[in-house]
Amino acid sequence: MRKKWKRKILINNPEELDRVQIKQNLLDGNQVIVQFSHPDFYTSILEEVDELCARLDENFGVRFYGHYSLSFDARTLLRIPHVKMLHLNSLVQAHNTETLAMLEQLYSLNLGIHELENSEILGIESLRSLRDLVIMSDKKILNLQYFKEFSHLEQLHIGGKVKNLDAIGDLEALNYLALHSISKLPLHFINRLKKLKYLRILLGGREHIQEIEENEIDHLEICRIRGFHDLGNISNFRALTSLKIEDQAGLREIAFDRGMEALQEISISNCKGLECLSGMEQLPSLRKLRIFKTAIDFDSFIGQKLPSALSEFEFITSKSKVDQEIQDSLFKLGFRKWSI
């Protein structure tokens, strides 16, 4: 299952809450987050926020951010014991984070504290029931060994300094994984994630992802990884429907050397060293293709056999005259522009 992105509606430092509008926004399929940037703004309203937390589902949440020159006191969370979605992010410091243990209804947690005080924070028992977790650690080395107890976790975005990364492989229910700024640590554990459908590897540094064997991943995204130059095992992603590659200057070639029957969308952006994208005939279901700022020669590329299903094709060099000529050529060939 692909991660479902929902529009986030933020209510910033409110003096009062419009309950009717909040409920309507939730009925429309959005997430609603009441957020506070300083203790002065939540002195009198948190009990009302908690009442809504108790009545509404996990798409209604609370966020604490900013608090510049202050350390966020996590004992504040004792005032919202019914919170299901909680964001403690864009914070420099926080203390008393053990208070998270008192939040027994947490479904989703976004934790981004620059100077995280507790490297063993994932050992807090109440977090084991989480379905959705974002956690970033810039200074402390976050211990991931506790993941073997997170049997319900379906979506994980993790980044920064970590140890025991291999413990992610114990998350049997995981279907979405984003690895952010995690450099060079081996990725063999991904082969144990049999339900994984959505994989994003962002920032950090590594040369390849050759450790990943044949899998059932649906969406693959590789973005701004230092030193990355080899995507030779792309055919191991046999169930892929969407491929997104961005800001990979060292990548010279992507070759589809065997049939990938499910692949429908490819977006390649700002890969200035990429000279060759071959094997397009192996992609019978490809409908959408975007090639932006690469070293691929358009005339050579368009001369190869392209999938008959391809209908939306965008090829951009960022040279306005050349791009207009290419756009005219693609239009004459019956292709439409890429649509979001």
Results as ranks from 00 to 15, higher is better:
252 R>W: 03
206 R>V: 08
311 S>P: 03
102 M>V: 09
67 H>N: 10
17 L>T: 06
155 Q>L: 09
233 N>T: 14
116 L>A: 01
110 N>I: 09
124 I>W: 04
20 V>D: 09
69 S>C: 01
181 S>A: 09
48 E>Q: 08
286 L>C: 06
108 S>I: 06
29 G>S: 06
73 D>N: 14
94 A>G: 03
210 Q>C: 05
305 K>T: 15
251 L>T: 13
40 D>Q: 08
147 F>N: 00
314 E>H: 04
35 Q>L: 10
313 F>Y: 15
323 D>A: 07
140 K>P: 00
10 L>Q: 05
269 S>D: 11
99 T>R: 04
56 L>R: 03
66 G>K: 02
11 I>Y: 10
339 S>D: 04
250 G>Q: 09
213 E>V: 04
22 I>L: 08
98 E>L: 05
3 K>L: 10
4 K>R: 13
83 V>E: 01
317 T>F: 04
291 I>K: 00
270 N>Q: 09
75 R>Q: 11
29 G>H: 13
283 L>A: 04
55 R>M: 07
197 K>A: 05
217 I>H: 00
182 I>Y: 05
168 I>C: 03
331 F>H: 07
336 R>E: 14
245 I>M: 04
7 R>G: 02
266 I>S: 01
139 K>I: 15
30 N>E: 06
75 R>S: 06
79 R>I: 02
296 I>E: 03
199 L>W: 11
7 R>K: 15
273 G>V: 12
147 F>D: 00
320 S>E: 09
208 H>N: 15
300 S>H: 11
142 L>W: 00
132 D>Y: 15
194 K>Y: 13
276 C>Y: 10
104 E>F: 06
72 F>C: 00
32 V>Q: 05
190 I>G: 03
288 K>P: 02
81 P>Y: 14
254 I>N: 02
42 Y>Q: 04
210 Q>F: 07
83 V>Q: 03
236 N>P: 03
72 F>K: 00
33 I>S: 01
329 S>I: 11
192 R>P: 01
75 R>W: 07
237 F>Y: 15
173 A>C: 07
79 R>H: 07
233 N>L: 02
221 E>Q: 10
238 R>L: 02
228 F>I: 08
294 T>F: 07
112 G>S: 09
210 Q>N: 11
315 F>K: 01
339 S>C: 02
203 L>K: 10
90 S>F: 14
71 S>R: 02
37 S>T: 15
320 S>Q: 07
290 R>T: 14
183 S>V: 06
265 E>N: 02
191 N>I: 09
132 D>V: 12
302 I>F: 12
111 L>S: 04
18 D>N: 14
61 G>N: 00
131 R>E: 12
13 N>C: 07
90 S>V: 08
113 I>F: 11
84 K>W: 05
9 I>W: 07
10 L>F: 15
160 G>C: 03
272 K>E: 13
327 Q>A: 07
229 H>W: 15
325 E>V: 13
32 V>Y: 08
52 L>K: 03
145 Q>E: 13
111 L>C: 06
